[in-house]
Design a protein around this nucleic acid. Structure first.
Lengths: 402, 402
DNA sequence: CCAATTTGTCAGGACAGCGAACTAATGCTG
DNA sequence: CAGCATTAGTTCGCTGTCCTGACAAATTGG
C-alpha cells in the first residue's frame, strides 16, 4: 500500500520481479531469488527487508542445501490481504472472503433480496461485515473484490449494461455503490466468464491456455479463454451462444427474441421437446433425465439435445480452436449428456475436441471471482502484468508458465 | 542493435517509452516527450542524443508554439531498418521490401515455383536480393520478415503444420531454411490471419479492437482479433470456419472431409448450387454474379449463399461479439453479396453487426506481413510490449489508444 | 577440527534520473 | 523597439538504486 505510489520505478520493478517469483513458488530463499531474478544479493536483501517490514512476506522455514550454509526461505503472507468474491444470482447471493492464497476463510449464502439494486448492494455490505467479523479480519485488510452477475458487462467501464434477473441493477452505478458501501474497489464480470476463470484457476482447464466453458441450465452461455486471456468482445457480449443459429430457424421471430440455440436446448426447450415426443407432462428437466432408461420420449429428447449441443460445440471449436471444452451449469454437468455429445462429436469431427465436466460445479463463479480478485489485488499492489487489462489473468498465481 | 543487450534496465525502459511515443506521432519535440513520458527533460535529451547518434531518429522540422521558443521535433528514421513481407500463395509469390514506416520501397510478384518447399525458399531468396538491389538497401539494414501462407501454423514453434498447396513445405523446417537463406528471422503466419492484421493496420478495421476478417474465395477462412490481439487457438487453427455446421448436414461424410460451410459457399459449391437450380453450365462464380440481374437461377443461388453466410456471421458474432466484420477474398468482396448478407442479418439480429468490405483486397496478406514484420522489429530492437506474444500487435504503430 | 561451500552483510563506486537554476529563443504588448 | 512572459533546452549537484568485491556466518563432509 504505502510503497506502490511513492517508490521509484527501478525499485518497483525489483519488487515486482521478487513478488512474481514468490507467487510461483511458495517458499524461496534470498539466494535463490537473486539467481532467478538476476538481481544482486544485496538488492534482494533490501527488497525483502522492506517487504517483511510492511507485512507482505515472512520467514517460512529453512532449506538444507547439500553443502554450505542453510538458507532462510521467505513466503508471501497469505493473511497480508483479503479479498471478497461475490456470486450474484437471480435467486441466491453467495459471498466469500478469501486470503491471498485463495483459501476461503468465511462464506455465506442468502436468498437474493427482491427489492432491487440498492437493496442488493446493502445486502452484500451486511454479508461482508458479518464475514469479516466471523473470520476476525480487520476491515482495512480487505483490499478488493470481484462480483459475478448474469448479463452483459461493459468491458470499458466495468458497469452492468443488461441485468436480466435483478430489477434496477442496470440503472444503478453498481460499481460506485459497492465502493461506497464496502470501502473497496469491486470489479464486475459476467458470471459465466468468472466460472471460466474459476475452472482455469482451480478446475479442469488449469493447463489449457485456450478453452471454452459452456454453461447449460435455464439458459446457455459461454466463457472463452484464448492464449490465457479472457475474451470479452467489443461490448462484453462474447460467448452469448444463446443466439447461435443452431437447433432451429434463426429467422424465426422467437429465436430472434430468446435465442435460437437457447430455445432449443435450454431447460424450457428440453421439457417442451420431451412433451412434444409424447412424454409425461408435469415434470422438470431433472425428471426427463431420470427417465432416460425407461422412457423412449426422454431418450429421444436428450438425444436430440445432445446432437444440437454437439453441433454448437463444433461451431465453437471451428472458430476458437479450443484445447478443451468444459461443460457446466445444472444441465451441462450431467454425464449422460456428455456421453451422448461425445458420440455425436465423433461423427462430425476428425479429431473430436476434449470434453470435460466442470470440476467446481455451482461454485465455479464464486471461485473465479475470488481468483480474479486476488489477481487484481496483486496487480494493484505490485503492478504485476500491468500491460494486461483487468481480469486478463495472464500472470495468475497458479500460472506455471515462465 | 548494439544498445539493447548492454544498456542497463532503467535506460532501456526510458528508451522504450520514448520510442513508443515516437511510433504514435511522427514528429515530437523533446519537451513534449518529457511531458508525455513523465521523464525529466535531461533524461530525454540524453536518450535522444544516443538514439540520434545510433541513427534511429533524426531532427524533423520545428514547431511553433503559440508563444515561447520554438521546439525542434524528432522523428524515427524510416530508413533505419527494413523488413520483408511475403505472401506465399499456391499460384503466386508476392514479396515486398518496406521501411519502418511501412512504406513499400520495392515489391515483386512471381508464379510460385512448383518444385516444392526448398525451391520456394530459394526463390524467395532470389527475390529478396533483387529487391534489396533495386531499392539500394544494404543487406544488413534488413532486420526481419514475416511470411503468410495458407494452412495451419503451430503457434508455439511457428512452423507450418499443414500446407495444402505447396508440396513438401510441411516436412521442411521452413523457418530455419529461410533464416539460413535470407539471413534474417522470418515469422510464419496463416495468410488469413495476416490479412486480418493488414486490415487492422491499414484497412477498414483500424479502430476496432475486436473484429473478424472473413475471406470467401475458393475456400473460406477467418482471422480474429479480440481486444487488439490476434486469436490463434490451441493449435493455430482458430478461424477455420470451413467446418462450421451451417449450410448442410455436419454429419454428412462430405462435410466431414471438406467442411460443411465451405462445401456450401466455396466457389465450387456456388457453381454447383447454380447448376442445381437450372443455371447455364460451363461458367465460373464470376459468371454467376454477372448474371444476377438476368438469370433467376443465379439470383436464387447467390441469395441462398448470402443467407448461409449471414447465419455464419451471426454464429461468429454470437461467439466473439466483434465490433465489425470485414469481408475479403475474391467472392467476399463483392458488393452484391454484402447487400444481401446485410438484408438477412437485419432479419436475424436485433442489432445487426457492421459489415465492411476489405480495403486492401488481394494485398491484405502482404500488407499484414509487412505490418507484423515492422512490429516484430520494433519489439526486438526496443523491447516494446515484450509481454505480448509474437504478432500480437498491441503496440502497433497506428494504435492510437493510450 | 578443518576445508569447502553456500548464505548473507558491509563497504565503495557507477550511473540513471530528478530538481533547480540558468541560458536561449520566440511572441505579445505597450 | 524594448521589455516581459513563455517555452525549449542545458548545466550542475544531489538522491537513490544497483552492482562488484570483500568479508563474516553457518553448515556439511572428511
Amino acid at each position: 500500500m504505502s510503497d506502490a505510489p511513492s517508490l521509484p520505478i527501478a525499485r518497483q520493478q525489483s519488487v515486482r520481479l521478487v513478488v512474481e517469483r514468490l507467487l510461483r513458488d511458495r517458499a524461496v530463499s534470498r539466494a535463490e531469488l537473486a539467481r532467478s531474478t538476476g538481481l544482486s544479493k544485496q538488492t534482494i536483501s533490501e527488497v525483502m527487508r522492506d517487504l517483511e517490514r510492511d507485512g507482505w512476506v515472512r520467514e517460512d522455514g529453512q532449506v538444507q542445501g547439500s553443502v554450505g550454509r542453510s538458507a532462510v526461505t521467505y513466503a508471501l503472507r497469505p493473511d497480508a490481504a483479503f479479498v471478497l468474491g461475490v456470486d450474484l444470482g437471480g435467486t441466491k447471493l453467495h459471498v466469500a472472503l478469501a486470503d491471498l492464497q485463495g483459501e476461503i476463510v468465511a462464506e455465506s449464502i442468502e436468498p437474493t433480496s427482491g427489492d432491487g439494486g440498492a437493496a442488493v448492494v446493502a445486502q452484500i455490505g451486511r454479508m461482508q461485515e458479518s464475514l469479516l467479523q466471523q473470520a476476525s479480519v480487520p476491515a482495512q485488510r480487505l483490499r478488493g473484490g470481484v462480483m459475478g452477475s448474469p448479463g452483459i458487462i461493459d468491458p470499458a467501464s466495468g458497469s452492468i449494461v443488461i441485468a436480466p434477473n435483478i430489477p434496477g441493477l442496470d440503472s444503478l452505478d453498481v460499481r460506485a455503490a459497492l465502493r461506497e458501501r464496502l470501502g473497496i474497489d469491486v470489479a464486475i464480470e459476467n458470471d459465466v466468464n468468472l466460472a471460466a476463470i474459476g475452472e482455469h484457476w482451480r478446475g479442469n482447464s488449469r493447463k489449457a491456455r485456450s478453452f471454452a466453458f459452456i454453461a447449460v441450465g435455464t439458459g446457455i452461455g459461454m466463457g472463452i479463454f484464448s492464449d490465457g486471456y479472457l475474451v470479452r468482445g467489443a461490448r462484453g457480449a462474447a460467448g452469448e451462444i444463446a443466439y447461435l443459429p443452431l437447433g432451429g430457424d434463426p429467422y424465426d421471430t422467437r429465436g430472434l427474441r430468446l435465442g435460437t440455440l437457447e430455445t432449443a436446448v435450454g431447460s424450457v426447450g428440453i421439457v417442451e421437446r420431451y412433451l412434444g415426443l409424447g412424454g409425461v407432462p408435469g415434470g422438470t428437466v431433472r425428471d426427463v433425465f431420470d427417465r432416460l432408461d425407461s422412457d423412449e420420449a426422454a431418450r429421444v429428447a436428450i438425444d436430440e439435445v445432445s446432437r444440437i449441443l454437439a453441433s454448437a460445440i463444433l461451431a465453437v471449436h471451428c472458430i476458437l480452436d479450443s484445447e478443451i471444452i468444459i461443460m457446466g451449469g445444472s444441465i451441462g454437468v450431467r454425464p449422460e449428456l456428455k456421453l451422448r455429445i461425445e458420440e455425436y462429436l465423433g461423427r462430425c469431427m476428425r479429431q473430436p475436441v476434449r470434453i470435460e465436466l466442470s470440476a467446481l460445479g455451482n461454485r465455479a463463479t464464486l471461485i473465479g471471482a475470488v481468483g480474479s480478485a486476488i489477481d487484481l489485488v496483486h496487480r494493484s499492489l505490485f503492478g504485476i502484468g500491468r500491460d494486461a487489462g483487468p481480469l486478463a489473468l495472464p500472470a495468475m498465481a497458479t500460472d506455471v508458465a515462465a
